[in-house]
């Protein structure tokens, strides 16, 4: 197959056999209890230089408490998969944790746009669809996957995709490399202590990313008994043997919401998005992350039960989330 065009972006790439070796040696097949604190999970499983991915959106079921813990532990040189992301990328860059971003959608608020323009974080151009497809290839154990878009654009030029002549149709086709993140963070509705997990509602690539990533941290609203999963197997989103840590973090998506449980807190989200410069960023990080010991303290001191009750009350739509 002739390569007709090559995008310029640097990519994080793992040979499928290297990933298989990782799974063979690091992923425990037997169910062991993986319940731990967020501090322990991030300290054990996130290393400087890691490639980090997460599901779902900043406003709905994002792993916000885990992201805050990464910032609290001052991890460095992370490469972030900014898929469908709003303020996480800004906080991870503003805290000095992330140095590279694969961009699917990197909004909103002016801080992140400014630091990219100043050249303080390296960005590589993708799309929401191509990053999801890369994750699918990672989960399929194949080195790349062909797709029908990116073609003809500057997005392609600044991505790490390649265009080849498709041996079946003879037409040009875009190949995107598999993505095998070092760490995948996912906040779910229900999990058991072994790591079986249930998500209600839609997702980006929860199963794909859990399967494609070397280390998987699940945080959950609720811990349920393992026998529940065997009663209704069609509800299992992620089986335990993909998972390395389970953290019980009620309201773990705050300031985002979790479907059927609590609504997002737009006032707090506005506060994050109003950050325009480093000074304001440092003030926010100090007040809401560095000075706060853990997620429980964050909820107690920075949100309060009264506010949480209000957010629970606002989550009036329950249909489908059970």
């Amino acid at each position: 197959m002739d390569v007709l065009f090559e995008g310029q972006a640097e990519i994080r790439f793992t040979h499928p056999d290297d990933f298989r070796e990782w799974v063979r040696t690091h992923k425990k097949r037997e169910p062991v209890e993986k319940l731990m604190t967020e501090r322990e999970a991030i300290a054990r499983l996130v290393s400087d230089g890691d490639y980090l991915a997460y599901d779902f959106s900043s406003l709905t079921r994002g792993p916000q408490a885990l992201v805050r813990e990464i910032i609290r532990q001052r991890k460095r040189d992370l490469w972030v998969c900014a898929e469908f992301t709003l303020h996480e990328s800004a906080l991870l860059v503003g805290s000095g944790c992330a140095s590279r971003i694969d961009v699917g959608f990197m909004g909103y608020g002016s801080y992140i746009g400014k630091v990219v323009a100043e050249g303080r974080v390296r960005v590589f151009e993708w799309t929401n669809g191509s990053l999801a497809f890369r994750m699918l290839a990672g989960a399929r154990g194949i080195p790349f996957i062909p797709m029908r878009n990116l073609l003809g654009t500057d997005t392609l030029r600044h991505s790490g995709a390649k265009v080849v002549q498709d041996p079946f149709t003879g037409d040009p086709i875009c190949l995107v490399p598999a993505l095998n993140p070092d760490v995948f963070l996912v906040h779910v509705h229900q999990a058991d202590v072994f790591g079986n997990a249930r998500i209600f509602g839609t997702n980006l690539f929860a199963l794909e990313a859990a399967m494609a990533s070397k280390k998987v941290i699940v945080s959950c609203e609720e811990i349920i008994d393992p026998s529940e999963f065997r009663k209704e197997p069609s509800k299992t989103t992620i089986p335990y043997f993909l998972v390395d840590a389970v953290v019980h973090l009620p309201f773990g998506a705050y300031p985002g919401g979790v479907q059927g449980r609590y609504d997002l807190d737009l006032e707090h989200i506005d506060k994050v998005n109003a950050i325009t410069n480093d000074q304001e960023m440092q003030v926010y990080l100090q007040e809401y992350i560095y000075d706060i010991e853990d997620h429980t303290t964050f909820l107690e001191k920075k949100v309060g039960w009264k506010r949480l009750q209000e957010l629970i009350r606002r989550a009036a739509i329950k249909e489908g989330y059970h």
């Binding site: 469908f84 961009v103 699917g104 959608f105 990197m106 909004g107 909103y108 992140i112 746009g113 400014k114 990219v116 323009a117 100043e118 050249g119 960005v123 151009e125 993708w126 799309t127 929401n128 669809g129 191509s130 029908r148 878009n149 990116l150 073609l151 654009t153 500057d154 997005t155 600044h158």
Partner: peptide
């Protein structure tokens, strides 16, 4: 404006726009 590495102003990027416009 500017270059890709040092844009005058940076915006969120494609999101799913490239997929929609292509497919």
């Amino acid at each position: 404006g500017g270059t890709y590495e040092r844009p005058g102003r940076r915006f969120p990027g494609s999101g799913g726009g490239n997929e929609v416009a292509s497919l």
